[in-house]
Structures are given as C-alpha cells and as structure tokens.
Amino acid sequence: MNWMKRYWWKLLGVGILMFVLTFGLLSKVPTLNILNETIRNLFYHVPMWFTMYALFAYSVYHSILFLRKLNMDNDLHARSAAEVGFIFGLMGIATGSLWAKYTWGTFWEPRDPKLNGAAIALLIYLAYFVLRSAVEDETKRARLAAVYNIFAFPMQLAVTYIMPKFMISLHPGSSDTVNFKQYEMDSQLRLVFYPAVLGWILLGFWIFTLVYRIQKLKIISENEED
C-alpha cells in the first residue's frame, strides 16, 4: 500500500469533486429571483477563484523562500504554481462571463468592479510570465520574478476580493446590490460549497505537481546535454 501514502490526497480530492459535481445539481438551493438555478454556479464558478488564491499563495510563499535561500528549486515551485493558478483564473473569468450573458445580458459589464478586478488580477500575473520570459539570465530572472510576485499577490487579492467589497457591484455576494441582498449562504449551500473549494484546491495542487515535475525533468535533461 505504498502508493496510498503518496496518492491519498489526490484520491481524496477526486472523491470530493465527484460528490460536488453530481450532488451540486441535485441539492436543494434557495429560490431567488434573477439568480434562479444559476445559484448553483457557487459550486462550480466560485471554487475556481479559491483554487487560484490557494495556488498564488503557495507561489508567493516559495518566492519569499527563494529570496531568503536563493534556491532555484523554490523558483520552480513559484513559477509552476502561478501557472496553474492562472489557468484556474481563466476558468473563473470564462464561466463568470457566460453566466453574465444569461443574467445581465452581456458577456462583460465594463463598469463592474468585481469583473474589472478579476481582469486586472489576471493581467498582473500575465506580466509575471512576460517578465520571466524577458530575462535571459537564470538567477536574475528568478530574483526579479520573486520580488515581482511578492507585489503581485497582495495586489490581485485587493482588486478581486477586497476592493469590490467596498464598491457597488452587480456581482452576487457583493454588499449592497438590491436583488442579492437576500443572498446568504444557508447550510444547504455550504454542504456542497465547502467541499467544492477543498476538492478543487486539491486537484489544482495535483496538476501543479505535474507541471513542476515536468519542468524539473526538462531542466535535468538540459543540464545533461551541456
């Protein structure tokens, strides 16, 4: 049972997600105007952002470690986690945009702080990858990227989570939007929502380990060629 020791958290994540994906369509949800059945997007769209936060947090943690010890392995961790986190962010934007089309009648509401914040956050991380690809020297690249990442993480958290809380937003869950004032998480929603967040985070980290290991193999094989 040696493989169980290595795989248990991956299996746990898959099991949880199987529950979330199926029960998410069956569970009882609050009946609210405008939202209707799309309230179930809470189980699918919202965990994308939480997984993105988790991976970005892991990424910035390794950036800090890198600056302390200057170990290139930390740089590889930070890079891979940011990459997977970015993909989850793209999923969040795509699903949110589709929902907006059917709820607000437009794929993008340009005046909404939550939407613009999400777009800015992804652009901040796009700049992180551009910065990495622009620097040739490995150590220099790792150092610059680590410093930039430490700025990027609180910035993306501010524009996607904190700032929209103080502004008027159409997005469900925002403070003073008339139609969603009644939108509160009841126990039925939590029963699926919390596992959904945990399950997607576990799956996100699994994908991260794959990206990291492939990059590691690539570096080793490149060194052998030299």
């Binding site: 949800v29 009946t31 609210l32 105007n33 209707n36 059945e37």
Partner: peptide, 9 residues
C-alpha cells in the same frame, strides 16, 4: 407573492 414564484428547474 412574486418572491414565492421564483422560477426553478
């Protein structure tokens, strides 16, 4: 009354 008649699937 409107609130009760929210359309669900």
């Amino acid at each position: 009354a409107q609130g009760e008649a929210v359309e669900m699937a």
